[in-house]
Design a binder for these strands. Structure first.
Lengths: 158, 158
DNA sequence: GCCTAATTAATTGCGTACAATATACTAGAA
DNA sequence: TTCTAGTATATTGTACGCAATTAATTAGGC
């Protein structure tokens, strides 16, 4: 007798919970960042740069987990809007150094204050917030280290 | 004396944890679904249809949280690849009914079996998996109900 | 110095996401 | 019936996200 295949229900999937929550946060930040005309990926790019500027495109990408295919056009838009500057490295012309503009340096505290105000709407105490984040990061590590390419497909040909 | 603004560090943000985990799952499923030439959004569309077919575009969208701007082209690609059929409703021609193709009905158990095999790579027992999902969904509800448009920006003009 | 392998960004192509708009159709009021 | 408000999908425009490729530059071996 064949082993019955375990059913998969959409609303029970962790992937779908993460996918939905991530999109909702994207929408949340779209509204929260509207006064600054920033998108969510642009905001996390600024967060990374506020911690460490300048960085090469590669370094920046390793912090925000995005590659040059995403970052290059994103950074060009941010440059157009005056948030960052892009300069070829003088010593190694393969590299492009991304640095904060004065506007970005000046706006930091205003953005932090406004985002912090918006975050209070979540009604999550610091402990719940931290526990949730740690739980997500725990799962995230597991996902990162799993490689489905190792499992070869043995079912019917398409 | 002014209140000091609370600092915001990228790696401490729940939004970034969710954003990263969601992207990693997307990558995980890209590999897991490669034998079937399905993307992750296409897969959750199939999950919804396997539970209930046919559905109108609108009904489907309410299950997977996507609007027609995303679904219309996605469903056209899935139709081209033989996963779904699209038919105008005879009674109400505004609606388009999306139904599973025979190929999708036949492939269901093969896809479930392969995805389940891949999921074992996560090394998460059922309880941890369920707790993580519930924790994410709890936060997701909070994010959904928060509306940053209610907070007006009082900082410096841009 | 000269050739080759490695490194870094940029580009290309495809597939989402979603706001805003347009189009087609339906149903209800006058 | 005709006008109108509402509904359902499609289209348009902008911005990711990432695999794959290309182009430019650097560094290492000889």
């Amino acid at each position: 007798m064949a082993t019955p295949t375990k059913n998969i229900l959409l609303d029970e999937q962790l992937c779908f919970a993460l996918y939905t929550a991530s999109k909702r946060f994207n929408h949340f930040y779209a509204d929260a960042l509207a006064p600054f005309k920033l998108t969510y990926p642009q905001y996390i790019t600024l967060l990374a740069l506020w911690e460490n500027s300048p960085m090469t495109v590669r370094e920046l990408g390793s912090h925000v987990n995005l590659d040059s295919g995403t970052l290059t056009p994103l950074l060009k838009r941010m440059q157009t809007q005056g948030w960052v500057e892009r300069n070829r490295d003088e010593n190694d012309e393969r590299q492009v150094n991304i640095s904060l503009s004065q506007k970005a340096i000046d706006a930091k505290l205003d953005i932090f204050a406004h985002v912090n105000s918006c975050m209070e709407l979540l009604n999550m105490d610091a402990e719940t917030y931290a526990n949730t984040r740690d739980t997500v990061n725990f799962a995230s590590d597991r996902i990162k280290n799993a490689d489905p390419k190792k499992i070869d497909y043995t079912g019917t040909e398409l």
